[in-house]
Design a protein around this nucleic acid. Structure first.
Lengths: 176, 176
DNA sequence: GGTAACCCTGTACCCGGGTACGGGATGCAA
DNA sequence: TTGCATCCCGTACCCGGGTACAGGGTTACC
């Protein structure tokens, strides 16, 4: 089992053309801890190490955390991003996180995943549009008391049944 | 200090016209544990108790968890819902949760809060529309490998800078 | 060679919105 | 009166995406 994901140990002076974790973190706009966290989740490959055990990254390593952040902003979870990155990598079929449940969506290409995500995003937009118009209706009705309003169903502008299928959650949910 | 939020203890037979927690939960479509959770967070007033300590709710108590769920779907957090409910209640100025930080938005009416939320929802819709068109661009470009794509910035359809301001998070984030 | 700045590891904690569980007490009907 | 369903309370745990901290070791620069 040459599970050769680990980085080599380099020896010599102040490694030219190599970056230390803080530099990568700064360049990518993330925390050093976050880099380690990504490494634990196999988003980032294990970098080489200095003789003293410090991580040393090639200069293009900054691309990974940047891509991760971009993909997150496009709506992908870190698990999904890990799969997206694995798609493009030669050997490893799946990153094989230590103890994770499978998400069920294995082995699909970037195209297919993007299409799926696009559909999810469009669904969410539609939901939010229903929410927005409901809020506008509540504003128009000059409703002042939620409970009083909800009590007499005949006049309440909140369409309880119409919004029943909308997932619970803030519109700008889990901003870090 | 007549901090009279606590429910009375009733005595007698199988209380007519009163509901037990399981019945309220079923009628509202939530878990019994969730009702207790809402009570802890002062979303639900403390109900009366049977001589043995079981909660007994008036029949209209089901409205509260239903309204809470509806408000959540409209994008309000439980803290915000607590404030919304407090607005309509006579005595208590704020629900005064035990050890919570203040959200900063104190003492505003339903109208104003709805308007704020509407603006948030509209912002989120706009963000998701940018995301959707980015995903469409990635599909159009028939991009197959995230890393390869991101590496040569000149052709990559992902507008890193354009999406940089979008909050990180799944489109359908924190569905329970 | 001094020393400040960085980096290492592991573990615990944060957020919101609940769920799950253990061990006992009640309610209600047959 | 017995049996079973329901309920009580407190506490711990779940999820995702990190952050914070303690207690050391290493590097870079002067």
């Amino acid at each position: 089992m040459t599970d050769d994901v680990g980085g080599a140990v380099l020896r010599g002076g102040p490694e030219p053309g190599m970056l230390r974790s803080g530099q990568v973190a700064d360049a990518a706009g993330v925390n050093v801890e976050t880099l380690r966290y990504y490494e634990r989740r196999r988003l980032l490959p294990q970098p080489d190490r200095s003789p003293g055990g410090h991580r040393l990254y090639p200069t293009d390593a900054v691309t990974v955390p940047r891509v991760v952040k971009a993909a997150q902003r496009l709506g992908f979870s870190l698990d999904e991003v890990a799969e997206l990155l694995a798609v493009g990598r030669p050997g490893h079929p799946t990153p094989g996180r230590p103890r994770g449940r499978t998400t069920g969506t294995g082995r699909r290409g970037l195209q297919e995943r993007a299409a799926t995500k696009l559909a999810e995003v469009e669904t969410r937009i539609a939901d939010l549009q229903v929410i927005a118009s409901t809020l506008r209706a509540a504003l128009d009705a000059r409703c002042d008391d939620l409970m009083a309003c909800a009590a007499n169903e005949t006049c309440c502008p909140i369409p309880f049944s119409a919004i029943a299928s909308i997932p619970v959650g803030a519109p700008d949910a889990d901003r870090p």
